[in-house]
């Protein structure tokens, strides 16, 4: 018996339909979570103490690893610049190249990816465990909003602290890159400063900051959503944690492309 084209296409259409409903469902619930956070904003007494704790955990807790990685990123950029420099360009260009690479790309993106792993995984695992051990239900049963008490402080803390971490990362990457360039290229301080100033525009720092804010939203809100909706015990917590890191990392890379096109595209 021959199968018609329509019959052959039916499972594919069903699959696409189900997948679309799935995506729309998640988007709707994610949007409602954000709306709930705005609603909970005036109840600052409920989220204030947790906000301070989370800001400390995200900021101070991540500072060392962020500085370490941005230092390495700045250093490697300088070394590779040295490797590619053949004497065809004036040395001061290295100052501009390292400064711009770190501020526009490496500082925000490296910090974002590191925090997606460190902060995003922690948030998803914490909330997921609270969900499967009924702690979130317990909070609701006491007439308290888990969105206001658990999710809002995490997102606000990230929004405040992650841009600051990105700025620290930029500074560290730049300084280490400078030192490394001096070693690998033999560039003088005056040459490096001239190049860095020549290519620098104040918008570059704004761009880095704007990226950091978008990344901060992704690093906190996505793991909050995934952790909050965890199901099926310990296995579910593991799955939620992995999912949170993967989805957040991919979102950061997508945002990187979109923001570059929107803010830097001509």
């Amino acid at each position: 018996m021959r199968i018609s084209t329509v019959e052959r296409a039916l499972p594919v259409r069903r699959y696409v339909g189900r997948w679309s409903l799935h995506v729309v469902g998640h988007a709707g619930r994610f949007f409602m979570m954000i709306v709930d956070m705005f609603r909970g904003f005036p109840a600052w007494r409920a989220w204030g103490p947790e906000f301070v704790e989370q800001a400390n955990s995200i900021g101070y807790g991540s500072l060392f690893i962020v500085l370490l990685i941005s230092g390495f990123a700045g250093g490697v950029t300088a070394l590779q610049t040295g490797y590619q420099f053949t004497g065809a360009y004036p040395l001061y260009i290295a100052g501009g190249l390292i400064g711009e690479t770190v501020i526009l790309e490496l500082g925000p993106v490296m910090t974002g990816l590191v925090l997606a792993g460190r902060v995003g995984a922690r948030i998803a695992a914490e909330l997921g465990t609270m969900r499967v051990t009924e702690q979130i239900d317990a909070l609701e049963s006491l007439g308290r909003s888990p969105v206001t008490q658990l999710l809002l402080p995490r997102c606000l803390a990230g929004l405040l602290v992650i841009p600051a971490l990105v700025m620290f990362s930029n500074a560290t990457g730049f300084i280490v890159g400078w030192v490394a360039a001096k070693q690998s290229l033999g560039i003088t301080n005056a040459e490096f400063q001239y190049g860095a100033r020549y290519f620098f525009r104040s918008f570059d720092l704004w761009y880095s900051g704007i990226k950091a804010i978008f990344f901060a939203i992704a690093i906190t809100a996505i793991p909050c959503y995934i952790g909050f909706n965890t199901q099926q015990g310990a296995e579910g917590v593991g799955r939620a944690t992995t999912q949170a890191v993967v989805v957040t990392s991919v979102t950061i890379l997508l945002l990187d492309v979109v923001l570059a096109q929107v803010l830097l595209g001509k």
Binding site: E134, D137, A138, S141, L142, G143
Partner: peptide
């Protein structure tokens, strides 16, 4: 919910 107390199976205490 402020008028209802709920005792969870495993306590559901905040760790």
């Amino acid at each position: 919910r402020t008028r209802i107390g709920y005792v969870f199976q495993n306590g559901a205490l905040f760790d």
